[in-house]
Amino acid sequence: MDEFLKSIEKKIVKLSFKQQILFGVLSCEKLLPNYRQFSSAVNWGNIEILEEAIVMIYQYLQDIELNEGELDSIYEKIIEITPNVENFEGDLAAYALDTCSAVADAVEFLLSEDQSYVLNIASIVRDTIDMFIQESEELDIADENADQKIVQHEYMKRETKRQHEILRRLLGAEIDLPFISAMRDLNNSYGPIIELSLVS
């Protein structure tokens, strides 16, 4: 595990189950525009299924009961709309795949309460940005300075700050509707995680 994930894990393990869920779903929401762009560009997929999953998770956080069958059903729907990158040209499918993987992990977390799924979500968001930086900056991975360039890139620095700020605010917080709304506003204030206009 790299230093980024170690630092995130140290904070995640201190959170309650609901706090961990909120961290995960906020991160999933940052990825939704990537799937929406992909679906619109290739006329394939269904963003509404991912949005439905997000709504279900927020309902759970507000103590609206979800049964296992509902969670299993939405999970299967997510799998159905997850693109096989080999079937699509360009880079958008890879970003859409990451989005589906993160939302699926959020649903899996509700079912299993295995916090490794939350760590996976944090990692997926970071990997999405890593991929974007490599492509948009045309980085040569053979370059021994490539990793440092990625870490120092404005998008990666902003995402690292977002994740740590949210984790800091979650610690000890009561997960009620006003707090959820405030956290979603904070999440949105960080802007898009990648510049979709640069992705083809």
Score class of each variant (00 low, 15 high):
Gln62Arg: 15
Gln62Met: 15
Gln62Ile: 12
Asp63Glu: 15
Asp63Cys: 07
Glu65Leu: 11
Leu66Asp: 13
Leu66Thr: 12
Leu66Asn: 10
Asn67Lys: 12
Glu68Arg: 14
Glu68Cys: 07
Gly69Phe: 11
Gly69Ala: 13
Gly69Lys: 13
Glu70Ala: 14
Glu70Lys: 14
Glu70Trp: 06
Leu71Cys: 13
Leu71Asp: 05
Ile74His: 03
Ile74Ala: 04
Ile74Asn: 11
Tyr75Cys: 06
Tyr75Val: 04
Tyr75Ala: 13
Glu76Leu: 14
Glu76Trp: 00
Glu76Asp: 15
Lys77Leu: 12
Lys77Asp: 14
Ile78Cys: 06
Ile78Gln: 03
Ile78Glu: 00
Ile79Gly: 04
Ile79Ala: 12
Glu80Cys: 05
Glu80Pro: 00
Ile81Leu: 08
Ile81His: 06
Thr82Val: 04
Pro83Glu: 08
Val85Leu: 06
Glu86Tyr: 12
Asn87Glu: 12
Phe88Met: 03
Glu89Ala: 09
Gly90Pro: 07
Asp91Gly: 01
Asp91Val: 00
Leu92Thr: 02
Leu92Trp: 02
Leu92Asn: 00
Ala93Arg: 02
Ala93Val: 06
Tyr95Asp: 02
Tyr95Ser: 01
Tyr95Met: 05
Ala96Lys: 01
Leu97His: 01
Asp98Cys: 08
Thr99Phe: 07
Thr99Asn: 10
Thr99Arg: 04
Thr99Pro: 01
Cys100Gln: 02
Ser101Lys: 03
Ser101Asn: 10
Ala102Asn: 08
Ala102Pro: 12
Ala102Phe: 05
Ala102Tyr: 03
Ala102Gly: 11
Val103Glu: 03
Val103Thr: 14
Val103Gly: 03
Val103Asn: 01
Ala104Ser: 15
Ala106Leu: 09
Val107Met: 05
Val107Gly: 03
Val107Asn: 02
Val107Arg: 02
Glu108Gln: 09
Phe109Pro: 03
Phe109Asn: 03
Leu110Gly: 02
